[in-house]
Simulated scan of single mutants.
Amino acid sequence: MTHQEAAWRRSSYSGSEGDNCVEVAALPHTVRVRDSKDVRRAPLALGPAAWAAFLRVVRLP
């Protein structure tokens, strides 16, 4: 499965006006992250450990 075929989910913290939107797609061995305003750009690819570390840093209390 390519990142174009993936099911992308928008962050619930993204603005309702369509700005500042981050989308995430979970693939078998990577998590892809992209800016929804420019989906033609290659998404950031993170391994499971890097994604878990990112979530620990950004997760709200």
Rank of each mutant, 00 (worst) to 15 (best):
A7M: 11
R9S: 14
S12P: 10
T30R: 14
E23Y: 00
W51G: 08
A26N: 09
L60Q: 06
A26M: 10
S12I: 03
E23H: 02
D19G: 09
G18V: 10
A6F: 02
V39F: 02
A6E: 07
W8Q: 07
E5I: 08
E23T: 00
P61H: 13
P61S: 15
P28A: 15
A7H: 12
R40G: 14
M1D: 07
M1F: 08
G47K: 12
A42Y: 05
D19H: 02
R56N: 13
E23C: 04
G47P: 03
A26R: 14
A52S: 13
A25T: 03
V22F: 04
V33M: 07
A42N: 08
A49H: 12
S11D: 00
P43E: 09
S11E: 08
K37V: 05
S36Q: 02
Q4V: 04
C21M: 05
A26C: 09
P28T: 10
L60D: 09
Y13D: 08
N20F: 06
R9N: 09
R40T: 14
A52V: 10
G18E: 02
D35A: 04
V39H: 04
A45N: 11
V33S: 05
T30K: 13
L44D: 06
S11F: 06
H29Q: 12
A7E: 12
R9W: 10
R10Q: 09
P48N: 04
R41E: 11
N20P: 02
C21N: 01
V31A: 07
G15V: 01
R34N: 00
G47E: 13
V24D: 04
C21V: 03
K37A: 06
R40E: 15
H29P: 00
V33F: 04
W8N: 06
H3P: 13
W8G: 02
A42G: 05
A45Y: 07
V57L: 10
A52Y: 07
W8V: 05
E17D: 15
T2L: 05
R56H: 10
L44G: 02
A7P: 04
A42C: 08
V33H: 01
L55Y: 04
L46K: 03
V33R: 06
E23K: 00
V24R: 03
L27R: 08
R32W: 14
D19K: 00
P48I: 12
D19C: 00
A49Q: 15
A26Q: 08
P61V: 07
M1I: 10
L46S: 08
R32D: 14
D38H: 14
A42R: 15
F54L: 14
V31K: 03
A49F: 03
A6V: 02
G47H: 05
P48G: 09
V22M: 04
V22G: 02
D38K: 10
S12R: 12
S36R: 00
E23P: 07
R41C: 06
W51L: 09
P61G: 13
D19F: 00
H29D: 15
D35P: 01
A49E: 14
T30C: 11
A52F: 07
C21H: 01
L55F: 06
P48H: 14
R41W: 10
V22R: 00
R40Y: 06
D38Y: 07
V57P: 11
P48K: 13
